[in-house]
Design a protein around this nucleic acid. Structure first.
Lengths: 342, 342
DNA sequence: CTGAAAGCGCTTACAG
DNA sequence: CTGAAAGCGCTTACAG
């Protein structure tokens, strides 16, 4: 048996005895299709192994068959995990996932979101992974016909999945406090130009809340931006080491920054937890080896969850987007880089 | 100024005073277009900011405007780097990069390459990153209308870019030999079901060649598959540690496997280079911190180079694919996990 | 070297 | 609830 040509909507119409138009509506779950027609179409499509041509649909003004996965960068551990998990869900649901890396450049971001018409022409939905949008971009995206779902972005009018970053940071900081430390430093994420990326902002807020509850404050010099790379963490910690007095504990807002901090300490002949206690947030695969105490978050789960949400939205476009929140759990993992203050 | 609608080929035809058909040909650099028409069209298109609708082109049988980046998995450090570098090149050249992860599952690979018609409908070209294809898949892909470029796949009839894996492994192994070690173990990459992935195969070959030149052999128990993950390396090294006699040095075919090996050693109360010298291959960002001696390879460069090659092929489809080879350089980096045998 | 015509496979109003 | 018609913006033979 050879199936020489792909079945078209025409074939489905012929086999089901209905018009192309009705078939089209039935296939897209639009209203005004009788129960019976719906079934007839479903059967015929199934039998023919019919799959709509996304090119034709797109040209005619319908679905593009694609979704975009946009990340600030695709190289970090977190994004690689989340992207792959999302890719898997999309592929299994028949959506082609377009990868868009912002390369940490605001210009790329502005260009992409500056022309939503162009983006809409290519994809039906956009999965945003910790993208730092400004208020205008959020409004435009929300007003566009694009389905939007995000990971790690609170204060956003569409569905979001993430962890409770504020709480996670509070937990990590609380761990340090519980060990008797009160002279803390924090390695924060990237500086935020937009208004939506809250993992950085919320984590910093959680850090401050933990301090507040103990009537503690942090010296401004000890709040330093590290981004989410090893190199950034190393630079940040080196900066702290240049101060005349070392804090007794450091909360790094992500594990990779914590690794960098550990490097910097070692380069200065110091180590954790002997000279400074260090706690991270992520539970990166290397953290176990490094003995890094950290707050673990489920990364692949967040990507997969968000992608599933997107697929649901896309499948039934009539259901209005609610802007639901989904928080996945985190867990403190005590290892060897933190210990009681002496 | 508001540009309400995107310019169509019609607009370009009107402005240039030529027919749609000629415009179409000119835009695609097809033959049979006079120098003058070519210029007219270029100017008009430029002025209108014209960009062809990929949906319309695809439907009419032309370019899809997309390329696929396919990787065995998207989560490992190597692939995340290469994918991002390729994504950047494609995006800058106006090609939409579709991400396809094989998730290390042969079934996903077979399904993808089993129906090249479906794939051709979605993309013009396929960038293969260390994908382990079997002979049939290679032949089918080569015969298809798809442009194909690969990274890290030798013995393949299309353009390939990579490092000289055999030589790199020879260098790493030679480093061990130079230090006086002769009782070696090797942690190889994944077992190969196909015929094209040669990074694993070639690296093992380089290891053997180095041994041969010293009239040395390796005990079969000391050749163990580790894949390219930390966990795989850890398992493999644990297996070696279960043998009654430990080799004095280990070559791990990738850094992540080397990290795992280091973990396993530590779990057994041993360490490198005290008990065993360990050399890797990659120069992962963590390797510096781990003090891992390794052979560095340029990862992002390989992805970018291959993507550029693809863009060239795609831009001028008339030039036949030559199956060119491009080898990027590697460099031995001696750090602290290797030392002279005593 | 150039253009008029048909058609790719869908969807969208618009009548029934 | 259903269908005939037009059209989305290109490309591909086919004449000139």
């Amino acid at each position: 048996m050879v199936i020489s040509q792909r079945a078209t909507i025409q074939d489905v119409a012929l086999l089901s005895g209905l018009s192309i138009c009705t078939v089209s509506r039935a296939l897209r779950n639009l209203p005004n299709v009788s129960e019976k027609s719906q079934q007839l179409v479903a059967q015929a499509a199934e039998k023919l192994g019919y799959k709509a041509s996304s090119a034709a649909a797109r040209l005619a003004g319908g679905s593009t068959g694609s979704v975009a996965i946009v990340a600030p960068t695709a190289t970090s551990w977190f994004f690689a995990q989340a992207v792959e998990a999302a890719e898997e869900v999309f592929a299994d649901s028949g959506w082609d996932p377009l990868l868009i890396s912002l390369r940490n450049k605001p210009s790329v971001r502005k260009q992409l979101f500056g022309d939503l018409t162009a983006l809409s022409q290519r994809v039906d939905g956009v999965l945003l992974l910790n993208v730092d949008l400004d208020a205008d971009e959020i409004a435009a995206l929300h007003a566009s016909p694009l389905a939007v779902v995000s990971v790690g972005m609170s204060h956003v009018p569409w569905d979001n999945v993430g962890i409770d970053d504020e709480q996670a940071a509070w937990t990590a900081t609380g761990h340090l406090l519980d060990l008797g430390h009160w002279d803390l430093a924090v390695l924060t994420g990237h500086e935020m130009s937009g208004t939506s990326v809250c993992s950085s902002r919320d984590r910093l807020a959680g850090f401050h809340r933990a301090l507040d509850s103990h009537d503690l404050t942090v010296h401004p010099d000890l709040v330093v931006a590290a981004g989410s790379t090893i190199e950034g963490g190393r630079r940040a910690m080196t900066e702290i080491l240049a101060n005349r007095s070392l804090p007794t504990a450091v909360f790094a807002a992500c594990d990779e920054a914590a690794f960098g901090a550990l490097m910097a300490l070692r380069e200065h002949g110091k180590s954790a937890p002997r000279d400074v206690s260090v706690v991270g947030l992520d539970d990166h695969p290397m953290s176990w080896f490094m003995g890094l105490s950290t707050v673990a978050q489920p990364v692949a789960d967040q990507g997969a969850f968000a992608a599933n949400l997107m697929c649901e939205r896309l499948q039934d476009p009539l259901v209005p987007t609610e802007g639901s929140r989904h928080m996945l759990g985190v867990k403190l993992i005590e290892r060897k880089t933190t210990r009681r203050k002496r």
